[in-house]
Each structure stands twice: as structure tokens, then as C-alpha cells.
Design a protein around this nucleic acid. Structure first.
Length: 428
RNA sequence: GGACGGGUGGCCGAGUGGUCUAAGGCGGCGGUCUUGAAAACCGCUGUACGGGAAACCGUACCGGGGGUUCGAAUCCCUCCCCGUCCGCCA
């Protein structure tokens, strides 16, 4: 969330930003509540001060009658304090309801627009989309013919949106993970495998809403736990409530987790197959930085994503996400969209990675700070980025590397782990 | 899952109802001494909100939440976490 004082002092900017991002937050009501909060806080402090003074004097009073009189005075003051505090709590709760839906500010260069149609293409990868004789198959068909993905069995066992990976798809899953992991290791990231569940408090801190009609999150009944939608959640929670050693920043983490998403309201042809599923594996990048370093870190994350997909030999474009499509915590977001030959009528770009600079928006809620040179602390900046989201990377690999004979060539960089150059139909 | 013991500042650790304004130590910062350093000695050293030009002052915070009391780190309830033992288990 944003800093309360910042919102009050920049109400017009914040309001304008809400409009650009399609967020409905009553900024004016918040400003009004903040001024009431200040007054009320002062009132509570004063009452506490008086009550404390009375309590202290009782300890020193010898005369029993005098003591009783003071106690009575103390009781009255505490009663008044309780009432004033209750009013303050109500004001805080009301203002927080508004503050929670105010999104992060936006980078001045982020394209302004209501949705992904306003996204701005920044550049393309090294490789051109492949050409095919005849219409290429999509990954669902390839997966079926090569006995790699069983959607029917997934649906039977767990419902629509689940799948079994089989045979060489399992090797591809591990190969993709290992490919990403090796790059991040060589770049000095600390590798982690994170919990697949997290407390709702941590989800909220990172900007995810665990319950409610439009939630993307699966929650575990009768607990305060949810399945994570990304390791961004657990990696953000990793240092919650801590003051980080400034000398150790930036901290670069790589987190491998399963990701679970309800995908409420999704559907249609674009969501066919592995593109929009309830569970997938993801290798995630995460960083904690000093405020001045976060923009460079975002570029670095984006560059790593480009290197991964250039290395896979897959065509992609880099997109600067429009304000209306940013989500709550992001200040700026770059997506990589890989060429998927089986998507749409004659191939389309589909999102395979996403990297965001969340500035101090998550850190403030999670309470992650560093010591400034002078006295005091400030909030760090947090960034996240996809290294490999296996399900979507798998679509890109299968569809781009399909051959006229029905086989799929394994990209060079994955061969060491898959152990073969080509995936062929059973019995071929 | 059960029983018992714990959770106190950046770290360690004392504190079982009233000068707690949280002892003491370590670490850190500043100073004295020194050619320099170490040692020794002296001083300073938590976070947030509010007031103030500033010095400073007020309030809250001793794992989270709630309660008892004029007054809670301290007593009660509850949840979380850590340790030990038992049970179960890949």
C-alpha cells in the first residue's frame, strides 16, 4: 500500500493515478478520514497521558481514602480512553479499507490505457517465428499425439484445468526448471524451494486477496492458509517484519514453487490447454533493493528473461504494460510474449513471463525495511519476475519445435537434461 | 496430535502487579589516551505516530489478539512460533 501521508499530500496525483489504472478508490474520503484520525489520535494520547499520571500517583499515595478517590478518577479516565480508542479504531479501519484498494503509483513512461490493448511493444527477441509447411498443430494436439499431456485424466482426477504431464513432458518440465536455475545461479541468485502454502496475512502483504468473489486464490478450509499463486508471495514473506542489513542489498532470490490459481471467469479458446491452468510450476526471480536501484533491477530481470528465451531459440516480444493492466502493487511491468504457432488462427504471441517493480508498495505492508545513513529506517523496494513458468514455456517449446513428421525437436539448451534430441510419437 | 518448558531492544540476557523511564553484557557510533592501532576509560545507541525551528516532549509497542486492574513484560484466555519428550508418519 501507499504511505498515508503521501496520499494526503498528493491527493490529486493519487486520484489521477487511480483513474488511469481503473481503480475505484475514494481518495477524498481517505484524506478526510486521515485528518479525523490525527485529531482522534491526539485525543487518545492525551487521555492516556492523564490516566497514566493518575495511575502512577496511586502507587505513591499512602492515605487509603485518597487512594480510593484517585482510583475512581482513574476508572473514569480509562473509560473515556476506551471509548476514544474505539472511535479511533473505527476511523483507521475505514481509512484502511480505502487505502488497500489504492494501487501503486505508475512509472511516468508506462503507457496509459485501460487494458492490455494499450500495451506498448518495446522490442523483439533474436529469433524470428518459424515457418511451417501447412498449418502447425497446437500443443494440445501435439501433447496428445506424443503422449505427453493428459488433460482428460487431469479433469477426471481434479477437474477442468488440471492435467497429467507424461513421459518426455516430465523430462522437459525438469529441464526447463534446471535451465532457468542454472542461469540464475551463475548470476548470483540464492536458490530456494518455497512453501506452496502461505498465511493469508502474507498473501495480503504481497497484494493478493485470499477470499472473496473474484479471488484467484485457493484457500484451505478452516485454516488461515492459502495455496500460493506464485513464489513471489512466499519470497516477499521471507523477510516480512525485518530490518535488512543495508550492506547486503540487493538480495536476489530464485524461488521454485507450484502455483495455484482458480482462474475465476477465464475461458474460451485462448485459455485452451496448458495456457490457463489451475496448477503449474514456476521458477521465479525476486529481489529486495534500495529505492535507487529498483529501476535498474527491473531492466536486469527483463534482460534475464530475454536471455532465457533467446537461448531457447523462441521468438518473443517485450511489452511495457499499460496502466490499466498493471495490477495493484506494480509501479512498472514488462511482459515477454512468446510466439505460439498453434494459438489463434495462425499463431499469436502469448504471455510467458512478467516482471514488476513494486517499489515500496509491498514492503510497506510486509514491514521490510533497511537502515538509512541517518537515524531511522525506510522501506526497501521489491521486484519479481518470471524466469520460467513451465506450463507456458512448454507450449512455446512444443509448438515452435514441431516437425513435419509429427516429432518435436528438443531445444539445444535442454538436451543435456532431456537426454535426447527429438521427441517422437510412440511406435514411430 | 499429546505433555512440559520457553518467546524481552541489532544480538545475548535479567526482570512474577506500582520510580520499568526495561538491569547487565555484546555489537555499533562518538570521545579521551596513542605516531597509528589495540586495550582501557567516558558518553551515545529500538520502532511507529503526534507536537515543536530545535533541544526536546507526549503516546503506543516486551511473539499476535483479547481480558482482569486505577496500573500488566509480569496475572487470566486464545492463537502463532521455538525447544524437549511421547505418539503418528514419507
Amino acid at each position: 500500500m501507499l504511505d498515508r501521508r503521501f496520499v494526503v499530500e498528493n491527493a490529486e496525483l493519487v486520484e489521477q493515478n487511480c483513474q488511469r489504472r481503473g481503480a475505484h478508490a475514494d481518495v477524498r474520503a481517505f484524506v478526510e478520514l486521515e485528518s479525523r484520525r490525527k485529531t482522534q489520535q491526539f485525543e487518545v494520547d492525551e487521555l492516556n497521558r492523564k490516566a497514566n499520571a493518575v495511575s502512577k500517583s496511586i502507587g505513591k499515595t499512602k492515605d487509603p481514602q485518597e487512594r480510593e478517590a484517585r482510583k475512581e478518577e482513574g476508572r473514569a479516565l480509562r473509560e473515556a480512553t476506551t471509548a476514544a480508542q474505539a472511535e479511533l479504531d473505527a476511523i483507521v479501519a475505514e481509512s484502511e479499507t480505502i487505502l488497500r484498494v489504492i494501487p501503486n503509483m505508475s512509472h511516468p513512461e508506462a503507457p496509459v490505457g485501460a487494458d492490455d490493448k494499450a500495451n506498448l511493444e518495446l522490442r523483439r527477441g533474436k529469433h524470428e517465428p518459424p515457418t511451417f509447411e501447412g498449418k502447425p498443430l497446437d500443443h494440445v494436439e501435439l501433447g496428445e499425439r506424443l503422449d505427453l499431456i493428459d488433460f482428460e485424466a487431469g479433469a477426471k482426477v481434479a477437474g477442468h484445468g488440471f492435467y497429467f504431464l507424461k513421459n518426455d513432458a516430465v523430462l522437459l518440465e525438469f529441464a526447463l526448471q534446471r535451465y532457468a536455475l542454472d542461469l540464475l545461479l551463475s548470476e548470483g541468485f540464492t536458490p530456494t524451494i518455497t512453501p506452496d502454502l502461505a498465511r493469508n496475512e502474507i498473501l495480503q502483504g504481497t497484494g493478493y486477496i485470499p477470499r472473496g468473489p473474484e479471488t484467484q486464490i485457493y484457500s484451505i478450509a478452516e485454516t488461515d492458509l492459502s495455496l500460493v499463486a506464485t513464489a513471489e508471495i512466499t519470497l516477499g514473506g521471507l523477510y516480512s517484519g525485518e530490518i535488512l542489513d543495508t550492506a547486503k542489498l540487493p538480495i536476489k532470490l530464485c524461488g521454485i514453487s507450484h502455483c495455484y490459481r482458480t482462474e475465476a471467469g477465464a475461458g474460451g479458446r485462448a485459455a485452451r490447454g496448458l495456457y490457463r491452468v489451475h496448477q503449474f510450476t514456476k521458477v521465479e526471480m525476486f529481489a529486495y533493493t534500495l529505492p535507487d536501484d529498483s529501476e535498474a533491477m527491473l531492466d536486469y530481470f527483463c534482460e534475464l528473461e530475454c536471455r532465457l528465451f533467446d537461448g531457447l531459440g523462441i521468438a518473443y516480444r517485450v511489452v511495457d504494460t499499460a496502466t490499466g493492466d498493471l495490477g495493484g502493487p506494480a509501479y512498472r511491468k514488462f511482459d515477454l510474449e512468446a510466439w505460439m504457432p498453434g494459438r489463434g488462427e495462425s499463431g499469436e504471441y502469448g504471455e510467458v513471463t512478467s516482471t514488476s517493480n513494486c517499489t515500496d508498495y509491498q514492503a510497506r505492508r510486509l514491514g521490510i525495511r533497511y537502515r538509512t545513513g541517518e537515524k531511522g529506517t525506510a522501506f526497501v523496494h521489491t521486484l519479481n519476475g518470471t524466469a520460467i513458468a513451465v506450463s507456458r514455456a512448454l507450449i512455446a517449446v512444443l509448438e515452435n519445435y514441431q516437425q513435419a513428421d509429427g516429432s518435436v525437436v528438443v531445444p539445444d539448451v535442454l538436451r543435456a537434461w532431456v537426454g535426447k534430441e527429438r521427441i517422437v510419437p510412440a511406435g514411430a
